[in-house]
Nucleic acid binder design. Structure first.
Lengths: 146, 146
DNA sequence: CTCCATTACTAAGCGCGCTGAGTATCATAC
DNA sequence: GTATGATACTCAGCGCGCTTAGTAATGGAG
């Protein structure tokens, strides 16, 4: 006994909380055949197409991870991947009609999805503090890295 | 531009923060041939052996996930898995000498690992609020579930 | 003692993180 | 015009979450 979750180090609590919230999302997104990672991508593409690398940078994941997530979205026809004619190394990702419709059916959900907190604004600020401190500036790293 | 991370919904910030902190851990734990999940298990086993299911319940993961994590620890000889002679369905997990030594070499790290916050206690309280709200009571579910 | 539900765990498979190691394509230097 | 280096992305592989679908052992009911 005694080692209840109240005694856990903060980092561990953070992981658990994130996992549980994501799981809550999953329950809801399963109906729409979407994942949390996929939702983020669709969101990032709201205004205009982006390259794979730019998506990765903004989502704070590696290009490899983003590549797979985008592939999954493309497989489900939520997104289209086109080679940039100007720079053929680049893959431009853009939402399909289906992708846009999917997003529209989920608007406003982000807010209602999150459990109520005593001080939501303060909580956000603390999260941003952590991200800025640990994450530094987003800089996609490939295999080579430095 | 304009869609900087400041505008992200809180749930997404939570995921990113957790991921970045875990990654910070990874950098440190790689040296000790350990993972974040493995560290949690070793921590939970500090006082006495536990069954696989009990470990899963306390870590708030499924028995399947815990099974694999424990297997990995056993492979690296950080942990020993013995069949409970009283109830042969149960697998008791206990730390080995190596596992204990590994833990000792990491004491105090949990605190220094976490980035400084304006109000750490308040932050913890909010995380616990989320966990209690979303996680409910820990209840391991297997394939059957309900 | 046998049947049957429950419990504890395993197996298989998927998504999302990661790393390390390629392969194209572009841009620059010469 | 051809080397050289940087950039953008892919491939392979691992750990940790999850789900769905088993198997083995226990514990009651009869």
């Amino acid at each position: 006994m005694t080692d209840s979750i109240e005694d856990w180090p903060t980092g561990r609590l953070l992981s658990v909380a994130a996992r549980l919230v994501e799981q809550r999302w999953r329950e809801r997104l399963d109906q729409a055949q979407l994942t949390h990672a996929g939702l983020i991508v669709l969101h990032l593409l709201a205004d205009h197409p982006l390259t794979l690398g730019e998506l990765a940078r903004r989502a704070r994941v590696t290009a490899q991870t983003m590549g797979r997530t985008v592939d999954n979205l493309a497989r489900d026809a939520r997104v289209r991947i086109v080679v940039d004619p100007v720079d053929r190394r680049r893959r431009l990702v853009e939402r399909t009609e289906a992708g846009i419709r999917t997003m529209e059916s989920l608007t406003g959900l982000e807010v209602s999805m999150f459990p109520p907190l005593a001080d939501p604004a303060e909580f956000r600020e603390q999260l941003l503090q952590i991200i800025r401190h640990v994450g530094g500036d987003p800089q996609i790293t490939y295999g080579d890295a430095r």
